[in-house]
């Protein structure tokens, strides 16, 4: 199915939650959805006949300077089509529902997004840091991140 058709299908089902279609001259088009509805939309995308996105290739956190966001890259192994969903989150206390119960692979991706950007995923079974040490301060991939001076008595900067 073409991306446009999938978008129309989704828009029909969730007229409120699907916000915007971003088609670019270069690269992949994507669909912006309401962050609060992400679980329902993803469940629909996975279970609906004809869509069957059973493969979450990538879940990334984003910092757009004025807002945060998450991006989901989906495949369907059966129909071999792809789809990209985006959500935007406020700068203060970003959080959205977890999709861990739909695709198990989201578990670690979401932990990574939390580790790097401080985006909280509700209903996640184990929302702790994954790459940085558990007692690390700050969220490194935020654009305004300032690194730690020392960690457990060892100097970090050059």
């Amino acid at each position: 199915m073409l991306v446009q058709e999938i978008y129309d299908n989704l828009k029909e089902k969730f007229p409120e939650a699907v916000l915007e279609f971003i088609g670019t001259a270069t690269g992949d088009p994507s669909t912006v959805v309401d962050a609060g509805q992400i679980y329902n939309i993803c469940k629909y995308l996975r279970d609906q006949d004809g869509l069957e996105f059973d493969y979450l290739a990538l879940l990334s956190g984003m910092d757009y300077k004025d807002k945060f966001g998450t991006v989901y890259h989906l495949y369907s192994l059966k129909y071999k089509h792809r789809f990209v969903i985006k959500t935007y989150l406020p700068k203060e206390d970003p959080s959205l529902p977890s999709v861990e119960r739909i695709w198990k692979t989201a578990n670690w991706h979401e932990r990574e997004a939390y580790d790097m950007f401080g985006i909280k995923f509700e209903n996640h079974p184990n929302m702790i840091r994954i790459l940085c040490p558990y007692d690390w301060e700050g969220y490194p991939l935020r654009k305004d991140y300032v690194g730690q001076e020392t960690y457990h008595g060892v100097r970090i900067p050059v």
Partner: peptide, 16 residues
Amino acid sequence: PPKGEIYCSAENPKGE
């Protein structure tokens, strides 16, 4: 590259 975004993948020995 111009403004935009892309997801590009390839089959690595270990996977995608």
